[in-house]
């Protein structure tokens, strides 16, 4: 269903560094209902993949929708996705629009 989001893009981030290297803000019941990327750290996996940008909103992580999830829950899902050894990448469904 996430793929039906207008103007959304699937970005696969290989785990190329020991950190993911993004900061997010937002989550359900805040002014920013879906997590938005506010920082990309140089040298992190996200920076290395060159496709994630500050300001993008994350709709899904490995096919799991972040809609309705509070900030901490969304952050945990992303942290778990980075930590798991099942995959050597994370798929983000992102949109440029809030």
């Amino acid at each position: 269903p996430g793929l039906l989001e207008p103007m959304s893009t699937l970005v696969r981030v290989p785990k190329s560094a020991s950190t993911l290297g993004i900061a997010i803000e937002g989550g359900a019941n805040t002014r920013q209902p879906l997590p938005r990327i506010v920082t990309i750290q140089r040298g992190g996996s996200a920076h290395n993949c060159r496709q994630l940008k500050v300001g993008q909103v994350i709709l899904e992580v490995n096919g799991i929708s972040l809609r309705g999830r509070e900030h901490r829950e969304a952050a945990c899902l992303i942290a778990e996705a980075f930590k798991t050894k099942e995959k050597d990448y994370i798929d983000f469904l992102i949109t440029e629009f809030n």
Partner: peptide, 15 residues
């Protein structure tokens, strides 16, 4: 719009 303004800001988490 009113409701939106009353929603709190989010914390920021580095991942």
């Amino acid at each position: 719009r009113e409701k939106r303004l009353t929603l709190p800001p989010s914390e920021i988490t580095l991942l």
